Amino acid sequence: MGFLGFLLLGLIAGAIAKAILPGRQGGGIIVTLILGVVGALLGGFIGSALFGVGLNEFFSLSTWLLAIGGAIIVLLIYGMITRRSAR
């Protein structure tokens, strides 16, 4: 998958993860999309380390599930960090 395809995957995965997560995380849409790209990287790393499946093809279901799962993890961590700093 090319750079632009990976970037698009991360942006969409971040938006889906934001829609899935309940509550209100800090940051706007730009922060969410950037965290989605980071989450797609994390999901690809975890998928290749644990399951032997990485982010190979743009239209693969495993690619999307790994990217969205990674984005959810990153958004949860970001939510915990921003919640602590707001207190």
Rank of each mutant, 00 (worst) to 15 (best):
I72H: 04
T32C: 10
G39S: 00
A86F: 12
G47C: 07
G27W: 06
G2S: 10
P22K: 14
L33G: 15
I77Q: 00
G36F: 06
G47H: 08
I29N: 11
F58L: 15
R87L: 12
A71Q: 08
I68V: 15
R83S: 13
A67F: 06
T63Y: 01
V38E: 00
A17T: 02
A49V: 15
V53D: 07
G10V: 03
G2F: 08
F45W: 14
G5L: 12
L21F: 06
I73P: 04
M1N: 04
G10S: 04
G36Q: 02
I16D: 07
I72S: 07
V53E: 11
F59N: 12
L76Y: 14
R87A: 08
G36A: 06
G43A: 05
V74K: 00
L65F: 14
G39V: 03
L75I: 06
F45P: 00
I20P: 05
L9R: 05
G43S: 07
A19L: 14
L21C: 04
A71H: 09
L50A: 12
L4T: 13
A17R: 02
E57Y: 13
V31R: 14
G14L: 08
L9Y: 04
S62W: 14
S62P: 14
V74I: 15
T82C: 05
L55V: 14
M80T: 11
L11R: 00
A15T: 11
L75A: 10
A86M: 11
M1W: 02
S48C: 01
L41Y: 10
L75Y: 09
I16E: 04
G28I: 04
S62I: 08
A49E: 10
G28P: 03
G39L: 03
L8C: 02
L42T: 13
G5H: 10
R83W: 12
T63C: 03
G27I: 09
M80V: 11
A40V: 01
G43V: 09
V37N: 01
L7Q: 02
S85I: 13
L11S: 06
G39H: 06
G36D: 07
I77Y: 02
E57S: 11
K18P: 03
A71G: 08
N56W: 10
G54P: 05
F3T: 11
